[in-house]
């Protein structure tokens, strides 16, 4: 593993797979098919894109013009803020994989993760220049920002749908069905997690009160 880091080809492969993300954004069906079937994508590139997405989402807080984004800094928890993207993404990946694997989905968990990250590409690609651009506009020109910003999210969403279809080798109808089903799967996961943590908290509270009671009596 470490030996591979000394190899120049490792880096060439990494850069090539990262560049392939750009190809995916403009040729989603072809791109996402090749991503796994032709092994054009790498986990390193996927991680990079996810990292960039999270990084730019955080940077936006500080560097977007206050015309578009006013931040109540007292209310910001950076970890929660990052988790607000990373956690739903993780739930989607697990939920989607868990569901599609039962219904002839060809994608493996890792591949679903990789494709999902690749589908996020438009976000850093558009939002970063947009963040800089936001500092050069007035409220009259705010519409440009709003529209482009919305388009980048729409673009990412469409890529996500296309990616899942290609990874699992689903047709359009079945793909859409499973995208919606994935959302329900996410909700089920969330529900079970809440239940689980609620139970744990209650259980812990019981033992804490027990310990308090004993200490009180001693």
């Amino acid at each position: 593993m470490i030996a591979a880091l000394k190899n120049k080809e490792t880096y060439q492969e990494y850069v090539r797979s990262l560049k392939f993300a750009l190809y995916c954004t403009t040729h989603p069906l072809d791109g996402f098919w090749d991503l796994t079937h032709e092994r054009r994508g790498t986990y390193a590139a996927a991680n990079t894109i996810l990292f960039l997405t999270l990084l730019i989402r955080v940077l936006k807080l500080r560097y977007t013009s206050f015309i578009f984004l006013t931040v109540y800094w007292e209310g910001i928890n950076i970890f929660l803020y990052i988790a607000s993207v990373a956690f739903p993404l993780a739930m989607f990946v697990v939920g989607n994989w868990g569901l599609t694997t039962l219904f002839d989905g060809k994608g493996r968990l890792g591949q679903v993760y990789m494709a999902s990250c690749y589908a996020l590409t438009p976000y850093p690609l558009v939002q970063f220049p947009l963040m800089i651009f936001s500092n050069f506009v007035t409220v009259d020109e705010a519409e440009f920002y709003m529209v482009i910003s919305a388009l980048s999210l729409l673009w990412a969403a469409l890529l996500m749908i296309a990616a899942m279809g290609q990874i699992h080798e689903f047709g359009a109808g079945k793909n859409m069905l499973f995208m919606v089903a994935s959302l329900f799967a996410m909700m089920v996961i969330l529900f079970i997690l809440l239940l689980f943590f609620g139970m744990i908290a209650q259980g812990v509270a019981y033992f804490i009160s027990l310990a308090k009671e004993i200490m009180f009596r001693l």
């Binding site: 206050f66 015309i67 050069f136 007035t138 409220v139 009259d140």
Partner: peptide, 15 residues
């Protein structure tokens, strides 16, 4: 103080 309208007025002139 997050006064976007007045800021824009000033920024427009400044720009």
């Amino acid at each position: 103080k997050y006064d976007a309208d007045n800021y824009s007025k000033a920024y427009k002139q400044y720009r």
